[in-house]
Design a protein around this nucleic acid. Structure first.
Lengths: 342, 342
DNA sequence: TTGTACGCGTTATCAG
DNA sequence: CTGATAACGCGTACAA
């Protein structure tokens, strides 16, 4: 149990070499003769030597840890992104420390501090809904620890962001509904203080304006199960119901759609629906949900790779302000209303 | 950018005290006079001092990091468990390092090594499907680093496990199908080498035996989307189709069910279906899926709490071999076949 | 190509 | 109650 750890001292002593040589050999420093290097490496292996990262990092101040802050864990998009981050990071010899703000600015701040405390080499973050500013990342900026935002980022910040073109997505989704004959299209989305949602909203409004279609007041809510039901109930209560819905979250869209159907609304004949993310549930719900494909895994991979390449000096984050990934409209039955029009 | 870190030396020098006193004060050691302690703490705060965990842990060999190995990230059950782990760990001052074996024994081994390397204070793990033994955890055992398994654990191991009663779940699900008039019940599940699946299978067989119903050959597959489709196709090809299906994964069950329906099978009239996990999709698919509720978040919380209490000495893992959480059958439309029987 | 010796920031031991 | 000092294990000038 309390087996003393094997250290480079032990190796050095038993091999009648100096710790310096051992250290160099273990780091594969070519300055050490190939033969000596191999002898040392083999012996280390055999002795069950394991580098003590703490001592090592105390010297080098590199931790090979990457901090991650996500705003949620119950979203398929986010967990895909995490899978991407984990995969790339592990391959490159970094370990991600994942924290979770649960959409709380306060927890986001404390996570940021905590990770900084732990001396992560870099940070990947997606903002909480109510995050008003980026001041809690100043410590990173000040100390030159790179930060990459993904998904939820602020518009103008000195940090690199990996995102999709939310404006275009909003435009495309809305345009598609218009093309399907909708003239009274309602947007159900998250807080417009969040830049991503604001952009989708801007795209929505632009698509309407381009066709001279009147703008509808927007419904904002938490985009959870309750939000979907609430949206449906509000729509049912409206004197003049919309004929198209663009809901910027698949799960909420699905719940909303089902609630509407339970009250006799036909999808897509009465109301066409478009979601956002392309979660698996889109292909399960009846009718299958039209949505925007949002490549979570790719986004995680790109964010991690970008950060790590910066850390290894292979590239430089400061020249890149924004990386935009491909996203696209995926048309399924829930929005194909045109065929039913007389 | 290259602001030199504030260290206890800086504090000591400026306060005309020794580093020993400063260190003690920062750890709130009551041996230091209250007044001195406060002076030091205030000054540290004001100077923006931050403890260097690496130096500290080099001395104490405590890292306040918990390793986590999961077999998947694309499962709602697992991400709920992760949320539970993250929440408890953070509250207790620990940071989880999450790794992902993607159902690969090899990656599980390398994750285990890597986390051990990083000197985590403890480990929480759920095994990959094809993990043949627990030898890769011997290093933890040898060094006295506690390990807790959850969800996927081995039957007889010296490690504490947090699980549900998979035998009982299998029994209850099967019994329910029998009660609904099914007499030809097929089990679709993951590899029976995995203890959890083996237990569900044992429960299934026992329920059949108790009622003298013939046992059906079991269909095992990867319990993914393709697995659901494959299972459906096999069933469609059978000369004598089952009238009940117990599929030990909701998503697979849903896909299977939909494929069957596309081929004219009525659910539950022709075939009643029961899933496993109680993912959100159960309430979205038509008909709603009967399933076993598997409390992911609770399981994560319990696993983390158990581990941390052991670490803090508040309890002792070695006396607990197994913690069984509550699980239950949730009946929905997909299995209510009795009403249709003449 | 290898060795010597010091420093990284803390905590622990011992002595005051 | 406080101080001096030796570890902890590693990496790296500098010297040989």
């Amino acid at each position: 149990m309390l087996n003393k750890e094997v250290t480079i001292y032990d190796l050095a002593r038993q091999l009648h070499l100096s710790t310096a040589t051992v250290s160099r050999a273990l780091n594969n420093d070519p300055v050490v003769s190939r033969k000596t290097r191999e002898t040392i490496q083999d012996f280390a292996e055999q002795m069950g030597y394991q580098r003590n990262h703490f001592a090592s990092h105390l010297r080098t101040s590199k931790t090979f840890m990457i901090g991650v802050i996500v705003h949620a864990l119950d979203s398929q998009f986010i967990t895909s992104a995490l899978a991407g981050i984990e995969e790339v990071a592990t391959k490159e010899g970094y370990s991600p420390i994942i924290t979770h703000s649960r959409e709380s600015y306060q927890r986001e701040v404390s996570n940021a501090r905590n990770l900084f405390h732990r001396r992560v080499d870099g940070l990947i973050a997606s903002l909480a809904l109510d995050t008003p500013d980026l001041n809690h990342f100043d410590i990173y900026q000040d100390k030159g620890v790179p930060v990459v935002f993904f998904d939820r980022a602020e518009a103008n910040s000195p940090y690199t962001q990996v995102v999709i073109d939310n404006y275009q997505c909003g435009y495309d989704a809305t345009r598609h509904l218009i093309d399907q004959g909708c003239r009274n299209i309602m947007l159900v989305t998250g807080s417009l203080h969040c830049h991503a949602y604001a952009e989708r909203h801007r795209g929505y409004a632009a698509a309407l304006a381009d066709r001279g279609i009147p703008y509808q007041p927007v419904l904002t809510n938490d985009l959870c199960e309750a939000g979907g039901i609430a949206a449906a109930m509000q729509i049912l209560d409206m004197p003049e119901r919309p004929d198209g819905l663009f809901i910027t979250n698949d799960f909420t869209a699905v719940v909303c759609m089902q609630t509407l159907r339970q009250h006799g609304i036909r999808i897509p004949q009465d109301i066409a629906v478009v979601g956002f993310n392309d979660d698996e549930v889109c292909k399960i719900v009846e009718p299958n949900l039209t949505t925007i494909r949002y490549p979570g895994k790719d986004m995680g991979e790109v964010a991690a790779l970008t950060l790590i390449q910066h850390l290894t000096g292979a590239s430089n984050l400061s020249v890149m302000t924004k990386i935009v990934l491909r996203s696209e409209l995926v048309v399924r039955a829930s929005s194909l209303r045109k065929q039913y029009l007389t």
